[in-house]
Design a protein around this nucleic acid. Structure first.
Length: 609
DNA sequence: AGCACGCCGACT
DNA sequence: GTCGGCGTGCTC
């Protein structure tokens, strides 16, 4: 009698282990590692679906085994490498394997499964033991430099791997970048080797793509963050565009991110890693600093930059430049940090917008008629520093600016874009685009002028990663500038202004990382956050962890969240301890709500400080 | 997640 | 006496 070990794609801690079932002789031929099977479970009427993760001759389970009911897919749908990766990430993130399996394997589409036939019998290429090369690439800043684009560079690396029988996985943050990558892939000679893994595709398309990626064929598998878990035969390299982008972070438990999963996978499968970004994430910068990543730079021309120290969002000079460029029928981009019609207050006496003394964010009058910072919520006196106490409210959001500029430039075509709209491309003419960071449409030939109208706001936010994020948003927008284009930053002063003038984002982030390091802040440490709706449970958790892990430093605390910094070296121990405490305390909790977890554990919180 | 088991209050 | 509330615990 043969025995199959089964795991379930379930977020329940009780189900987070392998269950043994006997394999009826009628199914013996069809059941192997990675099979999707239905099994009876408990007293439930309908069978549960699970993955076969081991075939054994006997079980250590004391009682009699139940039988596998049926096999749901002809193919093996979970590879050994995927399962090992899920286990490693679950451990690292103090989460459960079951939570990750549904990322690694999409939902079954019966129709697509029946229609699928492997293109070719998977040719068995023995995996060569290669030493993984790990690099960070700074591509050319300007998109017009075609051979220095990230897509061109990635395609070249992919092509080299494919030529030697190795697959690659390419991950991009969102649909905009994916669209750019896809157009390059599909117009290349490798188009029939490219498979998209995207959560936005239909069920049948996703299953079809998954089966193909599992088939053993040598492929370029590309997609958004989930693709880092995709099946891939003889994986040669994982290529990641812009690893610092927020979209690379999973927003639900166990809060993994593309970068860390890729690094883990690279260790497990000894495949190469290539990160690329116009401005590095703090983590990548640190990995370069310690020599873990080799830094490769594609030297590139940089646009001329002007710094405007005006308090106005758009000063006279900028205004007339915009006007001039629009009337010569060339496109202009204005990057704004806030969406919509957010309001601010300007003092009637000194005419300046009142700003928070800590973070420089514009103040507003809250519903209780108190002057308050939007970002850190501090209250301020109703009196301006100049002594004035009368205000006029003004609108500062992107929509408000769009309205205002539509009136100022009635001749021009004024477009507003944000994460909510899906404008990825505009025609090259006298168009004025007002965009929130990251939503800038591309235009062939590039923008003739880019204005970063809220640069002061972006770096002034009282967040650890404000500067790093701002650099990334600026650099990605700058990449859309024309050969003859120029950029204007509003409100930057001091040392930073010098670096900005030369678009030296690498140096800015590098310095930021060094400063953070002196304070013991990430990326030289990691941040753990625990959220719970129960104050009692959170308090016990905090006390318990403080006692069990005395090295950890409390860095943030609110009514629902506690956050600690811990050393990178203690990561495994920390995750294990947190994991154990969370499951013990959840079981003992008096505040359990049906189907709701007591603690949300994030081993790498990038927002809480 | 389901589902059964089990131990206290209100009912024909 | 028994019906049924949902807290507790198990499912190979």
């Amino acid at each position: 009698m043969r025995v199959a070990s089964i795991v379930f794609a379930s977020p329940l801690p009780q189900l987070s282990k392998e269950f043994d079932y006997s394999i009826p002789s009628s199914l013996e031929e069809k059941v192997s590692f990675g099979s999707l099977v239905a099994v009876p479970f408990g007293t439930a009427k309908k069978p549960k679906t699970g993955f076969v993760v081991a075939i054994k001759n006997e079980s250590s389970f004391a009682k009699e085994l139940a039988e596998v009911s049926s096999v749901l897919s002809e193919s093996s749908v979970l590879t050994i490498e995927q399962y090992e990766l899920c286990k490693a990430i679950a451990k690292r993130q103090a989460g459960l394997v079951g939570e990750l399996l549904s990322t690694a394997v999409p939902k079954l589409s019966v129709r697509a499964d029946k229609a699928f036939s492997a293109v070719q019998p998977p040719e068995k290429i023995p995996k060569q033991v290669n030493t993984a090369r790990r690099t960070f690439i700074t591509p050319g800043l300007l998109d017009v430099e075609e051979e220095k684009r990230w897509t061109t560079i990635f395609l070249k690396i992919a092509s080299a791997n494919l030529a030697e029988g190795r697959s690659v996985i390419i991950v991009a943050p969102d649909f905009r970048d994916l669209e750019v990558l896809e157009s390059v892939l599909t117009s290349s000679s490798l188009s029939d080797k490219a498979v998209r893994i995207s959560s936005e595709d239909s069920l049948t398309d996703r299953w079809k793509a998954h089966l193909r990626a599992s088939s053993g064929e040598t492929l370029i598998t590309y997609g958004t963050r989930g693709a880092v878990f995709a099946p891939s035969s003889n994986l040669g390299a994982i290529l990641i565009w812009d690893d610092g982008d927020d979209s690379h972070f999973e927003q639900g438990a166990p809060y993994w991110n593309t970068r860390d999963v890729a690094l883990t996978r690279s260790e497990l499968e000894s495949c190469d890693i290539v990160f690329a970004a116009h401005s590095p994430s703090a983590e990548a910068s640190r990995l370069i600093e310690i020599g873990y990543l080799q830094h490769e730079v594609f030297e590139s021309s940089k646009p001329p930059v002007r710094i405007s120290v005006s308090n106005e969002r758009l000063d006279e000079e900028t205004y007339s430049l915009i006007s001039k460029i629009l009337s010569s029928d060339k496109p202009v981009l204005i990057q704004v940090s806030n969406l919509g019609y957010a309001s601010a207050i300007a003092c009637l006496k000194c005419k300046e917008i009142r700003r928070c003394q800590d973070c420089n964010t514009a103040l507003w009058i809250d519903p209780n008629k108190v002057a308050r910072c939007r970002s850190c919520k501090n209250q301020f006196s109703s009196q301006c520093e100049c002594g004035g106490s009368n205000y006029r409210s003004i609108s500062v959001g992107s929509q408000a600016l769009t309205d205002q500029l539509s009136r100022s430039f009635p001749e021009a075509n004024v477009i507003h874009t944000s994460g909510l709209e899906r404008i990825t491309r505009i025609e090259r003419k006298g168009t004025l685009v007002i965009s929130t960071p990251g939503a800038e449409p591309s235009v062939s030939g590039g923008y003739e002028l880019i204005v970063f109208s809220d640069s002061l706001n972006m770096i002034g936010m009282p967040r650890l990663r404000a500067l790093e994020n701002a650099c990334s948003k600026w650099a990605n927008a700058l990449a859309k500038i024309s050969k003859t284009g120029r950029a204007i930053y509003v409100g930057i002063t001091g040392d930073l202004a010098d670096q900005i003038r030369s678009s030296n984002f690498h140096e800015i982030v590098h310095r930021d990382v060094l400063e953070r390091g002196e304070l013991g802040l990430p990326p030289s440490t990691r941040t753990l956050s625990i959220t719970s709706s129960s104050r009692d449970d959170l308090k016990i958790m905090k006390e318990q962890l403080t006692e069990l892990l005395p090295e950890m430093r409390l860095v943030a605390e609110t009514a629902t969240t506690v956050a600690f910094n811990y050393s990178i070296a203690s990561g495994a121990e920390t995750a294990a301890t947190v994991s154990r405490s969370a499951s013990d305390l959840s079981r003992a909790s008096k505040h359990k709500k049906p189907g709701q977890r007591v603690f949300f554990v994030n081993m790498d919180d990038n927002k809480v400080i």
